[in-house]
C-alpha cells in the first residue's frame, strides 16, 4: 500500500514536470495553456492521492479529498477565463495552426445578423 502510494506520487510528479516542460516548449499561448493546466491538474491529483496512500497513518485523508475537489472545481474556471481573455485581446496563434473554430463561428454569427 505504501509503496503503491509512493509510486503514484512519482507518476504524479512526472506529470507535473511534463506539464511545466510543455509550458516552456509549446509555440503559442493556447497550447501553453493546455499543457500548463490539464497536465498539472492530473499531476497534482495523482500527487495528492499518492501522498494520502503513502501516509495512511495520518488522519488527513478527508482533507485531501476535499482539496482534490477544490482543485477540480476551480482550475477549469481560471483557465477558461484566461483563454477567453487571450482570445479577446487578439494574441496571435502559432504559425502551424490550421483551424480556428471560434473565429469562424464569430464571423458566421456576424454574417447572420447582418
Amino acid at each position: 500500500m505504501e509503496l503503491a502510494g509512493a509510486i503514484i506520487t512519482l507518476i504524479g510528479s512526472i506529470f507535473l514536470f511534463l506539464g511545466a516542460l510543455g509550458l516552456l516548449r509549446m509555440p503559442d499561448i493556447f497550447n501553453r495553456m493546455q499543457a500548463g493546466t490539464k497536465a498539472t491538474t492530473l499531476g497534482s491529483i495523482l500527487f495528492l492521492t499518492g501522498s494520502a496512500m503513502a501516509h495512511a497513518e495520518c488522519t488527513c485523508t478527508g482533507k485531501i479529498v476535499i482539496l482534490i475537489l477544490f482543485i477540480i472545481f476551480t482550475n477549469p474556471l481560471s483557465s477558461h477565463a484566461l483563454a477567453r481573455a487571450a482570445h479577446f485581446i487578439g494574441i496571435p496563434l502559432a504559425k502551424k495552426t490550421v483551424k480556428d473554430d471560434l473565429a469562424e463561428d464569430e464571423k458566421k454569427e456576424e454574417g447572420g445578423q447582418l
Binding site: F73, T74, L77, H80, A81, R84, F88
Partner: peptide, 18 residues
C-alpha cells in the same frame, strides 16, 4: 465593460457559498 461569460457566472454561483 465587457460582460463575463456564462461559465464564470455559474461557477461563481457554485463557489461563492463554498
Amino acid at each position: 465593460k465587457r460582460g463575463s461569460s456564462q461559465i464564470l457566472q455559474s461557477g461563481t454561483a457554485f463557489l461563492f457559498p463554498l
